[in-house]
């Protein structure tokens, strides 16, 4: 009985020894997965970070004469990006609101939110959450309403944009946001005090975009004013 117990104990001990040996071999086998050049670089890098840089794989540096050419393939989903708009017949209007830019007003076109039902016809383009469609209505930047965003075109890039009536304002260093919070006729839509940037619009509609912009630019404590124009579609890669 005692002898049998000893033998069973010996078997169990043998199993533990085998387990230990297996783990040791695991560590050694993991190290051996690393090829010699990478293993060398690991030890060197850990000792002196200025020594080895980007160790190339042993085989590639010895045998590659020219790089392998790439065989391009069409992406899974066809993306056009911001589609070029056909502006050949458009009578684009250059206005001082967009001075020093390539943006011009595209009359006879309105922006409709794409969250609702898509128009059955007449879609000229889709831009960042809006369908652009022809309209008989006159959109006047001097009587702007966020319910009828203004449509503009970058005449150089030939892309359309939607003016939302929101402006980004960057305050000068040290200026309190109370300047904006206490301003009459202005409301803050979003604020990022860490970068002194506030997105603002008029408290009243309709309002004159140009007058609003000029008032902001005239304020000495404001460093930068930009009108928001939504023109790009951020796409999933």
């Amino acid at each position: 009985m005692a002898r049998r117990s000893a033998i069973i104990l010996f078997i169990i001990l043998g199993a533990f020894v085998a387990l230990y040996l297996g783990q040791s071999r695991d560590r050694n086998s993991v190290l051996k997965i690393v090829d010699s050049s990478t293993e060398a670089s690991l030890s060197q890098i850990s000792q002196d970070s200025s020594a080895k840089t980007q160790v190339t794989e042993g085989a590639s540096s010895a045998t590659v004469e020219t790089m392998k050419a790439r065989d391009p393939r069409s992406p899974k989903s066809v993306r056009e990006g911001s589609p070029l708009v056909d502006i050949k017949e458009a009578k684009l209007e250059a206005v001082s609101l967009f001075a020093d830019t390539n943006w011009k007003i595209w009359p006879g076109v309105q922006a409709i939110s794409s969250k609702g039902t898509a128009p059955s016809s007449g879609i000229l383009a889709k831009v960042n959450g809006y369908y652009l469609v022809k309209t008989e209505e006159v959109n006047d930047f001097r009587s702007f309403s966020s319910q009828r965003p203004l449509v503009v075109v970058d005449s150089r890039l030939e892309i359309a944009g939607v003016v939302t009536g929101v402006f980004s304002v960057v305050l000068k260093e040290g200026v309190s946001s109370d300047l904006l919070k206490n301003a009459s006729g202005l409301k803050i839509v979003n604020e990022f005090p860490d970068i002194r940037t506030y997105y603002v619009t008029s408290s009243y509609e309709p309002f004159d975009l140009q007058t609003f912009q000029e008032a902001l630019k005239a304020e000495a404590e404001i460093e930068q004013v930009r009108i928001e124009i939504l023109s790009r579609q951020y796409e999933k890669y």
Partner: peptide, 12 residues
């Protein structure tokens, strides 16, 4: 520093 250049050659 630790990236592995792929298909590495400086020629061609």
């Amino acid at each position: 520093k630790t990236a592995v250049p792929i298909d590495y050659t400086t020629s061609g």
